[in-house]
Protein backbone atom coordinates (compact mmCIF):
# COMPACT_ATOMS: atom_id res chain seq x y z
CA UNK A 1 0.00 0.00 0.00
CA UNK A 2 2.61 2.54 1.08
CA UNK A 3 5.88 2.13 -0.79
CA UNK A 4 8.86 4.27 0.07
CA UNK A 5 12.02 3.75 -1.91
CA UNK A 6 15.42 5.28 -1.25
CA UNK A 7 13.86 8.51 -0.05
CA UNK A 8 16.34 11.34 0.41
CA UNK A 9 15.08 14.59 1.87
CA UNK A 10 16.86 17.81 2.68
CA UNK A 11 15.64 21.03 4.21
CA UNK A 12 14.58 23.56 1.62
CA UNK A 13 16.19 26.45 3.44
CA UNK A 14 19.54 24.93 4.28
CA UNK A 15 21.81 22.27 2.95
CA UNK A 16 20.97 19.70 5.55
CA UNK A 17 19.98 16.19 4.59
CA UNK A 18 17.59 14.65 7.07
CA UNK A 19 16.36 11.51 5.39
CA UNK A 20 19.20 9.63 3.82
CA UNK A 21 17.63 6.83 1.85
CA UNK A 22 14.53 5.48 3.55
CA UNK A 23 13.13 2.19 2.30
CA UNK A 24 9.84 1.10 3.73
CA UNK A 25 6.83 -0.79 2.56
CA UNK A 26 3.58 -1.09 4.50
CA UNK A 27 1.09 -3.62 3.22
CA UNK A 28 -2.67 -3.26 3.54
CA UNK A 29 -3.94 -4.83 6.74
CA UNK A 30 -0.59 -4.51 8.51
CA UNK A 31 0.67 -2.40 11.37
CA UNK A 32 4.24 -1.22 11.15
CA UNK A 33 5.94 0.56 14.02
CA UNK A 34 8.89 2.92 13.76
CA UNK A 35 11.10 3.55 16.76
CA UNK A 36 14.31 5.49 16.88
CA UNK A 37 16.30 8.05 18.79
CA UNK A 38 15.19 11.67 18.99
CA UNK A 39 16.07 13.58 15.88
CA UNK A 40 16.46 10.50 13.71
CA UNK A 41 13.91 11.77 11.17
CA UNK A 42 10.66 10.02 12.08
CA UNK A 43 8.49 13.14 12.11
CA UNK A 44 10.24 14.44 9.04
CA UNK A 45 9.27 11.26 7.21
CA UNK A 46 5.65 11.71 8.24
CA UNK A 47 5.62 15.37 7.16
CA UNK A 48 7.22 14.65 3.83
CA UNK A 49 4.69 11.93 3.15
CA UNK A 50 1.80 14.25 3.96
CA UNK A 51 3.20 17.12 1.94
CA UNK A 52 4.37 19.76 4.34
CA UNK A 53 6.34 22.69 2.89
CA UNK A 54 9.96 23.24 3.75
CA UNK A 55 11.42 19.94 2.60
CA UNK A 56 12.94 18.96 -0.68
CA UNK A 57 12.99 15.40 -1.95
CA UNK A 58 16.30 14.96 -3.73
CA UNK A 59 16.02 11.28 -4.55
CA UNK A 60 13.70 8.33 -4.26
CA UNK A 61 9.93 7.87 -4.35
CA UNK A 62 6.86 7.41 -2.21
CA UNK A 63 3.61 5.95 -3.51
CA UNK A 64 0.28 5.14 -1.96
CA UNK A 65 -1.71 2.44 -3.70
CA UNK A 66 0.45 3.07 -6.74
CA UNK A 67 -0.14 6.84 -6.75
CA UNK A 68 2.90 9.08 -6.62
CA UNK A 69 2.40 10.90 -3.34
CA UNK A 70 5.17 13.39 -3.92
CA UNK A 71 3.34 14.89 -6.89
CA UNK A 72 0.17 15.62 -4.93
CA UNK A 73 -0.92 18.56 -2.81
CA UNK A 74 -1.48 17.78 0.87
CA UNK A 75 -5.27 17.76 0.42
CA UNK A 76 -4.97 15.40 -2.54
CA UNK A 77 -2.88 13.04 -0.49
CA UNK A 78 -5.57 13.13 2.17
CA UNK A 79 -8.24 12.40 -0.41
CA UNK A 80 -6.08 9.54 -1.69
CA UNK A 81 -6.36 8.04 1.78
CA UNK A 82 -3.35 9.27 3.72
CA UNK A 83 -3.75 10.48 7.28
CA UNK A 84 -1.21 11.83 9.73
CA UNK A 85 -1.96 12.09 13.44
CA UNK A 86 0.40 14.92 14.36
CA UNK A 87 3.01 14.68 17.07
CA UNK A 88 2.01 18.23 17.96
CA UNK A 89 -1.62 18.83 16.92
CA UNK A 90 -2.17 22.42 15.86
CA UNK A 91 -4.42 24.87 17.69
CA UNK A 92 -6.66 26.89 15.38
CA UNK A 93 -8.50 29.68 17.19
CA UNK A 94 -11.74 30.75 15.58
CA UNK A 95 -12.39 27.50 13.70
CA UNK A 96 -14.88 25.21 15.42
CA UNK A 97 -13.76 21.62 15.81
CA UNK A 98 -17.01 20.31 14.40
CA UNK A 99 -17.03 22.71 11.43
CA UNK A 100 -13.47 21.74 10.71
CA UNK A 101 -14.21 18.02 10.72
CA UNK A 102 -17.32 18.36 8.62
CA UNK A 103 -15.48 20.48 6.07
CA UNK A 104 -12.68 17.92 5.95
CA UNK A 105 -14.96 14.89 5.63
CA UNK A 106 -17.02 16.50 2.89
CA UNK A 107 -14.01 17.89 1.04
CA UNK A 108 -12.57 14.39 0.84
CA UNK A 109 -15.87 12.89 -0.22
CA UNK A 110 -16.22 15.52 -2.89
CA UNK A 111 -12.68 14.94 -4.14
CA UNK A 112 -13.47 11.24 -4.45
CA UNK A 113 -16.75 11.92 -6.21
CA UNK A 114 -18.85 10.67 -3.30
CA UNK A 115 -21.96 12.30 -1.93
CA UNK A 116 -21.39 14.82 0.87
CA UNK A 117 -22.78 14.13 4.32
CA UNK A 118 -25.67 16.27 5.45
CA UNK A 119 -25.35 18.20 8.69
CA UNK A 120 -27.59 15.70 10.44
CA UNK A 121 -25.78 12.63 9.15
CA UNK A 122 -22.46 14.10 10.10
CA UNK A 123 -23.65 15.05 13.56
CA UNK A 124 -24.92 11.58 14.25
CA UNK A 125 -21.68 10.02 13.12
CA UNK A 126 -19.37 12.36 14.97
CA UNK A 127 -21.32 12.02 18.20
CA UNK A 128 -21.12 8.26 18.12
CA UNK A 129 -17.40 8.22 17.41
CA UNK A 130 -16.65 10.95 19.92
CA UNK A 131 -18.45 8.97 22.57
CA UNK A 132 -16.22 5.94 22.21
CA UNK A 133 -13.19 8.18 22.57
CA UNK A 134 -14.83 9.93 25.52
CA UNK A 135 -14.70 13.29 23.80
CA UNK A 136 -17.52 15.39 25.18
CA UNK A 137 -19.84 17.74 23.32
CA UNK A 138 -17.98 20.75 24.64
CA UNK A 139 -14.74 19.66 23.00
CA UNK A 140 -16.55 19.26 19.71
CA UNK A 141 -17.86 22.79 19.90
CA UNK A 142 -14.65 24.48 20.91
CA UNK A 143 -12.13 25.81 18.41
CA UNK A 144 -9.81 23.13 17.04
CA UNK A 145 -7.45 21.99 19.81
CA UNK A 146 -7.58 25.37 21.56
CA UNK A 147 -7.19 24.91 25.27
CA UNK A 148 -7.25 21.11 24.90
CA UNK A 149 -4.95 19.23 27.22
CA UNK A 150 -2.14 17.22 25.65
CA UNK A 151 -4.14 14.01 25.93
CA UNK A 152 -7.31 15.63 24.61
CA UNK A 153 -5.45 16.81 21.54
CA UNK A 154 -4.27 13.28 20.84
CA UNK A 155 -7.75 11.87 21.25
CA UNK A 156 -9.01 14.55 18.89
CA UNK A 157 -6.51 13.35 16.29
CA UNK A 158 -7.88 9.84 16.57
CA UNK A 159 -11.43 11.15 16.29
CA UNK A 160 -10.49 12.85 13.02
CA UNK A 161 -8.94 9.62 11.82
CA UNK A 162 -12.08 7.70 12.70
CA UNK A 163 -14.22 10.22 10.85
CA UNK A 164 -12.05 10.29 7.74
CA UNK A 165 -11.51 6.52 7.54
CA UNK A 166 -8.20 6.80 5.71
CA UNK A 167 -6.46 3.88 4.01
CA UNK A 168 -3.06 4.64 5.39
CA UNK A 169 -2.72 6.02 8.91
CA UNK A 170 0.49 7.46 10.24
CA UNK A 171 0.48 8.06 13.98
CA UNK A 172 3.35 10.22 15.19
CA UNK A 173 3.84 9.68 18.90
CA UNK A 174 0.13 9.60 19.51
CA UNK A 175 0.89 7.92 22.85
CA UNK A 176 2.97 10.77 24.24
CA UNK A 177 1.08 12.76 26.82
CA UNK A 178 -1.60 10.13 27.30
CA UNK A 179 -2.49 8.77 30.71
CA UNK A 180 -2.97 5.03 31.09
CA UNK A 181 -6.71 5.14 30.52
CA UNK A 182 -6.46 7.44 27.54
CA UNK A 183 -3.80 5.18 26.06
CA UNK A 184 -6.32 2.36 26.23
CA UNK A 185 -9.05 4.49 24.64
CA UNK A 186 -6.82 5.63 21.83
CA UNK A 187 -5.52 2.11 21.20
CA UNK A 188 -9.06 0.78 21.12
CA UNK A 189 -9.89 3.53 18.65
CA UNK A 190 -7.01 2.48 16.45
CA UNK A 191 -7.72 -1.23 16.77
CA UNK A 192 -11.34 -0.64 15.81
CA UNK A 193 -10.09 0.72 12.51
CA UNK A 194 -7.74 -2.16 11.80
CA UNK A 195 -8.89 -4.13 8.84
CA UNK A 196 -7.70 -5.83 5.71
CA UNK A 197 -7.77 -2.71 3.59
CA UNK A 198 -5.95 -0.38 5.93
CA UNK A 199 -2.31 0.09 6.78
CA UNK A 200 -0.77 1.72 9.85
CA UNK A 201 2.57 3.30 10.51
CA UNK A 202 2.93 3.91 14.21
CA UNK A 203 5.79 6.09 15.40
CA UNK A 204 6.52 5.66 19.07
CA UNK A 205 9.23 5.62 21.68
CA UNK A 206 7.55 3.14 23.95
CA UNK A 207 6.65 -0.49 24.01
CA UNK A 208 3.59 0.40 26.08
CA UNK A 209 1.58 1.52 23.07
CA UNK A 210 2.63 -1.56 21.17
CA UNK A 211 1.20 -3.73 23.95
CA UNK A 212 -2.19 -2.38 22.91
CA UNK A 213 -1.64 -1.97 19.20
CA UNK A 214 0.24 -5.10 18.26
CA UNK A 215 2.57 -4.39 15.35
CA UNK A 216 3.37 -6.83 12.60
CA UNK A 217 6.72 -5.26 11.85
CA UNK A 218 8.99 -2.99 13.88
CA UNK A 219 11.57 -0.71 12.27
CA UNK A 220 14.39 1.15 13.86
CA UNK A 221 15.23 4.49 12.33
CA UNK A 222 18.55 6.16 12.97
CA UNK A 223 20.16 9.13 11.30
CA UNK A 224 17.65 9.28 8.48
CA UNK A 225 17.54 5.58 7.57
CA UNK A 226 15.74 2.44 8.55
CA UNK A 227 18.64 0.54 10.05
CA UNK A 228 16.91 -2.56 11.26
CA UNK A 229 13.53 -4.23 10.88
CA UNK A 230 12.06 -7.17 12.72
CA UNK A 231 9.08 -8.55 14.57
CA UNK A 232 7.46 -7.24 17.75
CA UNK A 233 10.41 -8.57 19.74
CA UNK A 234 12.55 -5.74 18.35
CA UNK A 235 10.49 -3.22 20.29
CA UNK A 236 11.02 -5.19 23.47
CA UNK A 237 14.73 -5.22 22.85
CA UNK A 238 14.73 -1.42 22.54
CA UNK A 239 12.65 -1.12 25.66
CA UNK A 240 15.18 -3.14 27.64
CA UNK A 241 18.50 -2.17 26.15
CA UNK A 242 18.00 1.16 24.41
CA UNK A 243 19.46 1.81 20.98
CA UNK A 244 23.17 1.46 21.70
CA UNK A 245 23.48 -2.24 20.85
CA UNK A 246 21.42 -2.00 17.70
CA UNK A 247 23.32 1.02 16.44
CA UNK A 248 26.66 -0.57 17.23
CA UNK A 249 25.62 -3.71 15.40
CA UNK A 250 24.56 -1.89 12.21
CA UNK A 251 27.62 0.33 12.19
Amino acid sequence: MLEIKNLHVKLEEEDKEILKGVDLSVEAGKVHAIMGPNGSGKSTLSYVLSGRDGYEVTEGSATLGGKDLLELEPEERAAAGLFLAFQYPVEIPGVGNMTFMRTAVNAQRKARGEEELSAAEFLKLVRAKAKTLQIDADMLKRPVNVGFSGGEKKRNEILQMAMLEPKMCILDETDSGLDVDAMKLVSDGVNALRDQGRGFLVITHYQRLLDHIKPDVVHIMADGRIVKSGGPELALEVEHNGYADILAEVN
Binding site: E75, V90, F100
Partner: peptide
Amino acid sequence: ALFYLCSRGVPKKDATNML
Protein backbone atom coordinates in the same frame (compact mmCIF):
# COMPACT_ATOMS: atom_id res chain seq x y z
CA ALA B 1 -2.52 25.84 10.67
CA LEU B 2 -2.95 25.91 6.91
CA PHE B 3 -1.01 22.67 6.51
CA TYR B 4 -2.99 21.05 9.30
CA LEU B 5 -6.28 21.86 7.57
CA CYS B 6 -4.99 20.75 4.16
CA SER B 7 -3.61 17.53 5.58
CA ARG B 8 -7.19 16.66 6.50
CA GLY B 9 -8.29 17.10 2.93
CA VAL B 10 -9.46 20.71 2.93
CA PRO B 11 -8.35 22.38 -0.32
CA LYS B 12 -5.87 25.18 0.21
CA LYS B 13 -8.25 27.93 -0.92
CA ASP B 14 -10.98 26.76 1.41
CA ALA B 15 -8.50 26.37 4.24
CA THR B 16 -7.24 29.90 3.66
CA ASN B 17 -10.82 31.16 3.72
CA MET B 18 -11.53 29.28 6.94
CA LEU B 19 -8.50 30.81 8.60
